[in-house]
Design a protein around this nucleic acid. Structure first.
Length: 136
RNA sequence: UUGUAAAUCCGGGUAGUCGCUGCAUGGUAAUGCGGAGGAAAGUCGGGACAGCACAGGGUACCAUACUUCCUAACGGGAAGGGUUUGCAGCAGUGAUGCUGCUGACACAGCCAGUGCCACAGAAAAAAUACCGCCCCGGUCUCGAUCGGGGUAAGGGUGAAAACGUGAGGUAAGAGCUCACGCCAUAUCCGGGCGACCGGAUAUGAGGGUAAACCUUAUGGGCUGCAAGGCCAAAUAUACCGGCAAUUCGGUUCGCCGAUCAAGGGCUGCCCGUCCGGUGCCGGUGGGUAGGCCGCUGGAGGCUGGCAGUGAUGCCAGUCCAAGAUAAAUGACUGCCGGAUCUGAAAACCAGGCAUUUUCAGAUUGCACAGAAUCCCGCUUACAGGAUUUACAACGCU
RNA sequence: GCUCCCAUCGUCUAGCCCGGUCAGGACGCCAGGUUUUCAUCCUGGUAACAGGGGUUCAAAUCCCCUUGGGAGUA
């Protein structure tokens, strides 16, 4: 699919969504859809100068998952699944010269298997790409 | 050997692939080294550190409460003292005492004062006597009744009944008296640094409750790293409410000194004190919410020696062991280990069951749990394993 | 992170400071009555002190620990 030099499984800091303003605008103006057990919120922006196409926020509610160890574990699995499969979204977004902020909110109450998480993340990525093709 | 209890320690290992984070090298590609816990948890005590404030005094408020010691400090710890639950033994007519084992105790003072003690009960604290007991008087049907008085031994009530046991005494009774025993207070003697212990004498209106008010003693400024500092960015000496606008002296006419109003600081209040002349206080609103420092080398860890019953301290050597910030310390796979289940073999036994060991297979990522300024404690959670000590058992048929 | 507060019938609450009655009231819910029927109204019932330990004769109340919920704070 992609050229070898574009394949990167790294997850640097500028691909993580942070800052009060960016998150507020995402939750205020973003579109959302569900792929159980995830709620996905995303918003399109104009391309940034620093070259990051995608910024992502991963959240697990303290009310759904009480234990801090389990909460960290879920977040790590989600981040890992995203890290290994994100390249398709980056390529698509950079091809239309835009930038996207995404929030992945885990709404389940049980700790899932990694295979299941990876399957769902792939489905979300497919949905995001479809959304771009419809927009075009 | 197994089980139970207590104490201390450990609480998965390893290889590969792909990642995150700090530092160093290096230069924008990488490489090397480091990267959660005994509780990181609860935020219950105590500190360090920081900011505000800082003549001081009284009072209020809060906390603590056997003694001595340890500690930076503590509501923590060590050693000791006292009280007490349960069991067993011994002494005594008995009340009770002594000894051993075993736990528990927020354990100053109800003899400083005040309050409270529901229901029941006659009475709940200096006792108005319900039943009962006894004496005196009246009446009559001659053992009952009425009236007056004595009595806290007995009954019943209650969580608790006015020191307990035995005797004397008496109309009946009563610490009324005596002996013994317990308790409290005071004084003296001996021991102990002390709590307290042993003994003697005297006194006695001899319930409980201070996690009731309180008294006594001791201690305590307030706020917390979102403290606080710097840089960047951004705006509005915006609006509302309340309060105030002193006097005198000197002068080189710039001011200076004194007094004083509004108001503010000194945790609340009072005194006192300091600041304070065009502003002061309270509320609402607007802007920015990015980065750096604080931020990890410390009451530090480990080893050894010495002192001490011990907590702990001193000395010497050695080591450096996370610093994230929408928040890192991981994910996947293989092997080893653990746990559970099944099967087989062996050991013990006359045989079987149980137990133990070994082997094979299957299942399961596998205790509690994730640093957020740091440290010392406490409390709570915790599969399994190791060591030590104490006690019990050494199988059933 | 730090600093605090709260927990009582199905719901909203009183009682807690200063311990003592069957833990009171309102709205619910259930049953009966009133009414031709329904609503209203009347009568009766239902049902709670977050969990554990301590102090006390006695704890919703006082003290300690745990659990759950909430608030403030650049």
């Amino acid at each position: 699919m992609e050229k070898p030099q574009h394949i990167s499984h790294s997850f640097p800091k500028n691909e993580r969504l942070h800052g009060h303003n960016a998150i507020s605008t995402l939750f205020a103006n973003g579109q959302s859809f569900y792929v159980y057990p995830f709620k996905v919120i995303f918003v399109h922006n104009k391309a940034e100068e620093d070259g990051t196409e995608v910024r992502i926020l991963i959240s697990v509610s303290k009310k759904k998952v009480k234990n801090a160890v389990d909460r960290n574990h879920i977040k790590r699995m989600i981040r890992e699944a995203w890290r290994l499969n994100k390249q398709a979204v980056i390529n698509k977004v950079s091809s239309v010269n835009k930038q996207i902020d995404i929030a992945l909110i885990y709404t389940g109450q049980q700790t899932p298997e990694f295979i299941l998480v990876q399957k769902k993340i792939k489905a979300i990525i497919k949905r995001l790409i479809q959304d771009y093709e419809v927009a075009d």
